[in-house]
Design a protein around this nucleic acid. Structure first.
Lengths: 199, 199
DNA sequence: TTGTATATTTACCAATTGGTCAATAACGCC
DNA sequence: GGCGTTATTGACCAATTGGTAAATATACAA
């Protein structure tokens, strides 16, 4: 006996939010259509009706995750900082704060990351997002090189951006597995100590 | 009709190697007792006989993985390098090389890492290993601080070790998801450019 | 050879899973 | 109110899964 109807758009959003709840709580490996349906208080057949195959639901969930994760948005406030180095520091700090403020998003991203090692479409999608991330850092690094050409003579903007991205991701996985020993201030201070003296 | 017998030790090793094959090929999520048994050309009941529950097999696999991964072993050659900074560079280079030379181990580690976000015993085991890893780096960093007290005045050995570990792990996950854009030389060169000028 | 311990297997069970399908009720339209 | 469209549901299916138990062949000792 069918319940109340809803538009396709509303229903899909509702199901995707439920999928996020289940996946972030139990892991993508434990994401079942039935669990999602139960979370959304719907029948599992309805999930099939809106997403056809399970793979498409997971695909849509990855898109949803990418869209709803506030990743590397250079805010007005940060952009208005005078020195390129200060902007870099602010950006690193902002990204580290994000890891702590959206822990479920970060954890789920790690899940997809692991999934990407086996499923080509996941790998490609994340690689594309990774490229955007790297490009945003590269921009800042180019400014930095222009501002302080002598101090950073030994490196390139690409290289510096790569280091920054690697570092952020390393922090993400460590914060996940060993949160007690993860001290944002210490990590940031050390990075500042490394980059700062050059300028 | 039972096949040839084998000692418990031999058989356990055989099963664990099969488990590694399956897990590294298809992911931990797809690791089933039957798949492992098929890989080892044994009956699935025998796997149960030797490991009781599936969780124990996965547990044993994590131990096996940690034991057989050549992680951060400071070789004689590296230890004999004169400068602390040179030793650090050599160590970073060695760790990056490991990521490329044991890609299946690295991938499987990432799988366990993601698993650790949901299973306490995985998290605790990896956190312990992470602490060992960090401690090894801390040792080098302390030497570095002793050798160049003025250059690294703004940081601590703990902080520097944390940055190094974060960076290595960030490289690991990036190399996994986006191998085409992962250039060891570039990454290493940029890190050298950051740390080198200080000394 | 006979007997015993156990490593190994086949057969089986219950639960879960992705997926399909026909029945049905809610909704907009006339 | 009647009617067609379709979102929604429960029932069902086949495959896979972790796990158990009894049967059986193997290795080894007496």
């Amino acid at each position: 006996m069918p319940g109340k109807r809803a538009s396709e758009e509303v229903r899909r959003g509702q199901i995707l939010r439920a999928a996020f709840e289940v996946a972030s709580r139990e892991g993508i490996g434990s994401l079942t259509i039935r669990a999602v349906a139960a979370e959304a208080a719907l029948s599992h057949a309805l999930v099939h009706f809106h997403f056809q195959r399970k793979e498409r639901l997971v695909q849509a969930l990855l898109e949803w995750l990418i869209e709803t994760t506030s990743v590397l948005h250079v805010s007005e406030e940060v952009a208005r900082l005078p020195g390129a180095l200060d902007r870099l520091h602010a950006l690193l700090q902002q990204e580290m704060a994000r890891l702590s403020h959206q822990p479920r998003h970060t954890r789920l991203f790690l899940d997809f990351w692991a999934l990407g090692a086996r499923h080509e479409w996941v790998r490609a999608r994340i690689a594309a997002e990774l490229e955007r991330y790297r490009a945003a850092f590269r921009e800042i690094m180019e400014e930095l090189l222009r501002a302080e050409p002598r101090a950073f003579a030994a490196t390139t903007a690409d290289g510096l951006a790569a280091v920054a991205v690697s570092w952020i991701h390393g922090c993400a996985v460590q914060a996940m597995i060993d949160p007690e020993n993860f001290d944002t201030g210490e990590y940031l201070g050390a990075m500042r100590g490394l980059v700062g003296p050059l300028a």
